[in-house]
Amino acid sequence: MRQIPVDTSGAMVMLAQAPQIKIANRQTGEIALDRETNAKLMTADVLFVRDGNAELVTVTVPETGVSGELDSGARVSLTGLIARPWENEFNGQKRHGIAFRAVAITQVA
């Protein structure tokens, strides 16, 4: 699968919503796990602001990569951020998008 490194050094990155446990199956409540480390996965909504443009994206981070208390509106740093294009077909409808994944999310002092 393609992985594209994302450079956030020229942008202001702010936490829009604190990390929450990622659910793999909504019907059973199964929690999503990292395939390599078996750590629980979390999702955080972050706001990227660059050149007067803002974009809200959801980033998946392993629970072990979430450092301390993260407050909404705080500036954050995303370590090892990658973008991963995806496509699937469900009930005859094709869907596609970009999934964002980081190794860690930390609040910037």
Rank of each mutant, 00 (worst) to 15 (best):
T43R: 13
V61S: 02
L33T: 09
A32L: 05
G73T: 00
G52A: 08
K40Q: 15
K94L: 07
N53K: 11
P85R: 06
H96I: 00
R26C: 00
L41K: 10
L78E: 06
P62C: 02
R26Y: 05
A99D: 13
E63Y: 11
P5F: 04
A18V: 10
H96V: 00
M1Q: 09
D71Q: 13
A39W: 03
K94F: 07
Q20L: 08
G52N: 02
I82H: 10
G52F: 05
T28I: 03
Q107T: 14
T60F: 01
L41N: 05
V66L: 05
T37H: 05
R101Y: 12
V46A: 06
N53H: 12
Q27R: 14
A39M: 07
R50H: 12
E89N: 06
K40V: 12
E69M: 14
G10A: 13
E63I: 11
D51M: 09
P85K: 09
N91P: 00
R101H: 14
T43M: 10
T79P: 01
K22S: 03
R95V: 00
I21G: 01
A32R: 08
G65L: 06
L47T: 07
K94M: 08
S72P: 08
L33M: 12
D34C: 03
G73F: 05
G52Y: 02
R101M: 14
L15K: 01
R101P: 02
T43Q: 10
S72R: 09
T60Y: 01
T60P: 00
E69N: 12
V13Q: 00
E30M: 09
A99H: 10
V6W: 04
K94T: 13
S67M: 12
G65C: 01
N25M: 04
G68H: 09
N38I: 02
P5M: 08
I23D: 00
T8C: 13
E89V: 14
A54D: 07
G97Q: 02
E55A: 11
L15H: 01
S77D: 11
G68Y: 06
I82K: 14
A24P: 04
A24S: 08
P19V: 02
A74S: 14
V108E: 12
L33Y: 05
P85C: 05
R2N: 09
K94V: 07
